[in-house]
C-alpha cells in the first residue's frame, strides 16, 4: 500500500468515524435528553412526582445499561436491518450506538439536573415561578455547564464504542484498525488509526472543556 492509498484509507475512516460520533450523539441526545428530564421531574423529589412512571423508566434505563454493549449491538442487528435497512456499515453503527447511548445520556442529564440546589428552587418558587419556568429558567440554566460536560463524556464514550462496532464491520477507524491490524498484521495502519483516535478524543475533550469553562460562572 502506497502513501496515497494509506491517506485515502485513513481519511475515509476518519470521516466515517466523525459521522458516527456526530450522528449517534445527536440521536442519543434527541431521545436521551427528554428521557433524562422526565426521569428527574417524575422522581420522588421532582417537580411532578409520578411514582409508577418513575419506577418504570428507572427500571428500563437500568436494564438497558446493564447489557454489555457488544451484545447489545448483536441483539440489535435484526432491528437495525428493519429500521435502517442494513446491519453493516456506518448507518447500522449509528443506529446501535444511538440506542445504546440513550439510557447513558438520560442518566448524565438526570445527574446534572439533580445537582441544582433544592433550596435554590424553593427560593424561586417564593418569587412566583411556574413549574415550567423552574425547568427552563433555573434547572436548565444552572445545570448548563454540567449538561455540556456530559456531551463531552458521551462523545468520547462513543469514540470507544464505535471502535468496538468496528469488530462487526461497522465502519470508521476502529473497523480499519481491526481489519488491517488484527486480521492482516499490518500494525502500521493500526497504529495510525489509533493515533488519530487519540487525537480525536483529545480535541473533543479540550474544546468542550474550554466551552464549559467559558460559560460556567461558579468559579470566576
Amino acid at each position: 500500500m502506497n502513501a496515497t492509498q494509506l491517506y485515502d484509507l485513513l481519511s475515509t475512516g476518519f470521516v466515517d468515524t466523525l459521522w458516527i460520533i456526530l450522528g449517534s450523539s445527536l440521536i442519543a441526545y434527541g431521545f436521551g435528553f427528554p428521557l433524562g428530564v422526565l426521569v428527574t421531574l417524575t422522581g420522588k423529589d421532582g417537580l411532578y412526582p409520578k411514582p409508577v412512571l418513575s419506577l418504570g423508566l428507572n427500571r428500563a434505563i437500568n436494564i438497558f445499561r446493564s447489557i454489555p454493549f457488544y451484545i447489545l449491538v448483536v441483539a440489535l442487528m435484526p432491528l437495525s436491518r428493519f429500521v435502517v435497512g442494513t446491519s453493516l456499515g456506518i448507518k447500522a453503527t449509528i443506529f446501535s450506538l444511538s440506542v445504546g447511548a440513550i439510557p447513558f445520556v438520560a442518566r448524565l442529564v438526570e445527574s446534572a439536573l439533580l445537582e441544582v440546589d433544592s433550596d435554590m428552587i424553593e427560593s424561586v418558587i417564593t418569587m412566583g415561578a411556574s413549574k415550567l419556568q423552574i425547568v427552563t429558567k433555573v434547572l436548565f440554566r444552572e445545570a448548563l455547564p454540567q449538561l455540556i460536560q456530559g456531551l463531552s463524556i458521551t462523545m468520547i464514550m462513543l469514540v470507544g464504542y464505535s471502535a468496538m462496532a468496528g469488530l462487526m464491520g461497522g465502519g470508521g477507524l476502529g473497523d480499519i484498525a481491526i481489519r488491517y491490524g488484527y486480521y492482516r498484521y499490518n500494525y502500521t495502519i493500526m497504529y495510525y488509526a489509533l493515533i488519530i483516535l487519540i487525537i480525536l478524543v483529545e480535541v473533543i475533550q479540550t474544546s468542550i472543556g474550554l466551552i464549559v469553562k467559558h460559560i460556567d460562572k461558579r468559579n470566576k
Binding site: 440546589d117 433550596d119 435554590m120 424553593e122 427560593s123 424561586v124 417564593t126 418569587m127 412566583g128 415561578a129 411556574s130 419556568q133 429558567k137 433555573v138 440554566r141 444552572e142 448548563l144 455547564p145 460559560i215 460556567d216 460562572k217 461558579r218
Partner: peptide, 25 residues
C-alpha cells in the same frame, strides 16, 4: 423573602438576579 444562605442563581449576574422575579412575570 431573603433566605438564609441567600440562594442566588449562580449562573446569572447581579443585575439578572435582581431582575429575575420580574422576568418571571
Amino acid at each position: 423573602v431573603v433566605f438564609q444562605g441567600n440562594q442566588l442563581l449562580k449562573q446569572r449576574n447581579v443585575y439578572d438576579n435582581i431582575a429575575f422575579p420580574l422576568t418571571l412575570k
